[in-house]
Amino acid sequence: MIRVMNKLVAYSIITRIESMRPQRGGNGANLYIINPSVTRNVSRGKEVKNVEVPTDSAPEMPDEPLSFKNINNKEFKESLQVEGSHLKNSYREFKKLVFCFIPEKHFFYRLYRSYKAQIKSLETIYAEETLHEVGIQALKAMFSAMKMKDVHNPVGYFSRVVKQKVDDLYFERLMELEESVNP
């Protein structure tokens, strides 16, 4: 089934759009789009043109098989990308970093869940990049602490670091507001 779908994508008959779950992260369901057939429309258009101007003696261009393959390049895919696709990158980067040190799925899920739980209410306030940076910094802090000493509960340590970082962000924002009010 997957192989069949891959082949159809390769022939540009369908386009696959992958999505990520915005709340919990991880892969969501794929969206399959049946591509409109370009060849037929183009060839029809050519026929019509030929009928209108029968005296046109220009040499005919070789009939290139136009298909979505030509359009199905990177830019096209980028334009089709799901809104909030930064989540994908953020999630992947997070996963990559964790798997560098501890390649355990459940450990990663626990970390990511605790991170998501903490930033969930802040997503509307801060930029995604800022929150992502907080998560990455907290991860690095946790791993460096684990190297230095025996951390009993790494996930707890991580969530505490995230909490501190988020508090720091809040204080920074307060300071900025104060400065703007009393310059």
Partner: peptide, 27 residues
């Protein structure tokens, strides 16, 4: 994520006939 609105956003055909035509052409 609202999958239905996403699907509607990317829908390439307006009618069923157009889609059938495209499927036939592809085949």
């Amino acid at each position: 994520m609202n999958y239905v609105s996403l699907a509607i956003k990317h829908q390439p055909f307006k009618t069923k006939e157009e889609m059938n035509q495209a499927v036939r052409c592809h085949i």
